[in-house]
Simulated assay, not measured.
Amino acid sequence: MDVPSDPSRTKGRFRPTPQLPRSLVNLWPPMILGTVLWFLAFAVLLITGVRGVWLWTTLAGGGLGIVGMGIMLWQRAAARRGSRPTPHGL
């Protein structure tokens, strides 16, 4: 069994869960990369003259990426105001 290193901060037999590394908590880089890739795919399909469902799928993917970024900004602003609970460390 694991023995806690600092028993004064531990409740029960288990240690508290450690904080996630900042690189795993920061969602902006993959969000921006994914949105840019969707718009890049849209531009490639538009230039090559492809019409149909794939053209509109790539446009929708880029648009949803922008909507997702807006939602992330909205949630962070609400967390800073303290108007709604958010997971610890985000």
Rank of each mutant, 00 (worst) to 15 (best):
M1G: 11
D2K: 09
V3W: 09
V3M: 09
P4A: 02
P4E: 01
P7I: 01
P7C: 02
P7R: 05
S8Q: 09
S8A: 10
R9C: 10
R9G: 12
T10A: 07
T10E: 03
T10W: 00
K11I: 15
K11C: 10
G12Q: 00
G12A: 04
R13M: 10
R13G: 04
F14L: 15
F14Q: 14
R15I: 09
P16R: 11
P16N: 09
P16G: 11
T17P: 02
P18G: 06
P18N: 07
P18Q: 05
P18E: 07
Q19R: 14
Q19L: 14
Q19D: 15
L20C: 04
L20K: 09
P21H: 05
P21A: 10
R22V: 14
S23A: 13
S23W: 13
L24M: 10
V25K: 12
V25C: 09
V25G: 08
L27G: 08
L27C: 11
L27W: 00
M31S: 12
M31L: 15
M31Q: 12
M31R: 08
L33F: 08
G34K: 04
T35K: 06
T35A: 10
T35Y: 06
V36H: 02
W38M: 08
W38Q: 03
F39T: 02
L40F: 10
L40I: 06
A41F: 08
A41C: 12
A43Q: 06
A43Y: 07
V44C: 04
L46R: 14
L46W: 15
L46P: 00
T48E: 07
T48N: 06
G49K: 00
R51S: 15
V53Q: 13
V53A: 14
W54R: 08
W54L: 13
W54S: 12
L55M: 00
W56C: 02
W56K: 02
T57P: 00
T57W: 14
T58M: 11
L59D: 05
A60T: 13
A60K: 08
A60D: 11
G61K: 06
G61R: 01
G62H: 03
G63C: 01
G63T: 03
L64G: 07
G65Q: 04
I66W: 05
V67P: 00
V67H: 08
V67F: 11
G68N: 07
G68V: 06
M69R: 04
M69L: 08
I71M: 15
I71D: 11
L73Y: 12
W74A: 13
Q75Y: 14
R76T: 13
A77H: 09
A77C: 04
A79Y: 03
R80W: 06
R81Y: 03
R81D: 07
G82N: 04
G82T: 01
S83E: 15
S83G: 09
R84T: 10
P85S: 10
P85K: 02
T86Q: 15
T86I: 15
P87M: 05
P87N: 03
P87L: 04
G89I: 03
G89N: 03
G89D: 05
L90A: 11
